[in-house]
Amino acid sequence: MAVAIAENLLTDGPDGPCLIGGRDPETGEIVFPLPRGPLAARFKTHPLKREGTLWSFTVQRFPPKPPFIGATSPFKPYAVGYVELPGEIIVETRIKTENFAALKIGMAMKLTRETFAQRDGEDVYTYAFEPA
């Protein structure tokens, strides 16, 4: 059983995993991630849309230094990008795909989970988007 990388980051909705954003009830402003500390009082928890379009992307080809907790030896390159959730916000994300060459700005993406590391002997997952 994998554990989440952090609390208050994603939750299980009726259609699958869902990112937890915040919404300012007065202005309608949507933020991600949900702020901590004094700023948190301004925002109500707001589940973000699960589908969007790829805004930009790159591939992480070299192993990052700490605080990255994924395996670095051997290191498996991974894609990252920004996904625009229509009418809400653009979120930065890992992209779960092996086919880097198929990534294209504007393509449809959907939210998923990705187990990307091990910590204290347990699998750790985070949110990711994948081509829809």
Partner: peptide, 12 residues
């Protein structure tokens, strides 16, 4: 920023 941002390999 939250710790997960670095841990998941986004902070480069």
């Amino acid at each position: 920023l939250p710790a997960w941002y670095g841990e998941t390999g986004l902070m480069l």
